[in-house]
Design a protein around this nucleic acid. Structure first.
Lengths: 149, 149
DNA sequence: GTACATCATTTGTTTATACAAGTATAAGTT
DNA sequence: AACTTATACTTGTATAAACAAATGATGTAC
């Protein structure tokens, strides 16, 4: 469905403004599919992002700064995210002995199990993305890279 | 800059997951340019969106439902957005006489002036968008339309 | 015209975001 | 060693998002 129809706007002043509206609108659209998906699994999008980062380094620990630098949403407050994940038993935190300012975060077996649960249900989540061919997905992704400069 | 480098991830499992990460990341990137821009002008992104919708119908009023349906971010609480805009003197609200459940919202001269102020500074905001050619902007926009189905 | 469903907006509550300021450790300087 | 600066994380706070429930006006069925 064209963005003009989605937001009941006849036309945009130029193609760049149309793209801006489309990006923001599409992001909301994506989020509204992601949020209930992750909620059902007892995670938020950001919490899942952190777990995936930790699994990527497992069994090595990751410190807060590295987590932040690898997160899709850079504005997340890592301290509070990790607090939540500890509550749920998905990660552990320890003071790094070589630099006591840093915190070593590790994913637990329970955290890994939760990620497998997420992975098992991923195909459902990605159904809508297959409205684009693989080639188109690559094309959009590369153009977004170009947009950011 | 490639999304892989932005979030320090070597590779993605598939092109669709890469696109998902790229969409979310790019949206955050866009927002971090938009937010300070609008903040400096005393508006939020959603408040500006409402004002632009009202200007589109001016001098006709717009009711809450129509505002919601035209907003880029559908989750916004229109009641509270309008409250803020009234505080700032940019809109007025009146009960619709033909259907007293509805609220007629109108943009004020001050609201129009604020929008002109925004428009005057828009070119700066859109500089980064010109990393894409007009053709590329159209292409991405159309592919996003296709993605949503 | 009373009862019931629907519609348009409002309010409440919980959680998350944005941003600034604070604390503790480490590293560099004189 | 004392002093400054930078680093890595924490805390506080004000605002906004998400979601459910409530209010009040209108339309519809009987």
């Amino acid at each position: 469905m064209r963005i003009e129809d989605e937001i009941h706007q006849k036309e945009f002043k130029d193609d760049y403004r149309r793209l801006l509206a489309n990006l923001l609108f599409t992001n909301n659209w994506v989020n509204q599919q992601l949020m209930p998906f992750f909620k059902e699994l007892g995670l938020t999008l950001q919490q899942h992002n952190v777990l995936a980062i930790l699994r990527g380094q497992h069994p090595e620990p990751v410190c807060f700064g590295d987590i932040q630098g690898r997160m899709v949403d850079r504005n997340s407050n890592v301290t509070r995210l990790i607090d939540k994940l500890i509550e749920k038993g998905f990660v552990t935190r320890d003071i790094c002995q070589s630099n006591r300012r840093m915190i070593e975060v590790r994913i637990t077996p329970n955290g890994l199990k939760k990620l497998q649960e997420v992975d098992a249900k991923f195909p459902v989540l990605f159904e809508s993305f297959h409205n684009l061919t693989r080639e188109e997905a690559v094309l959009v992704s590369n153009l977004l890279d170009k947009l950011r400069g």
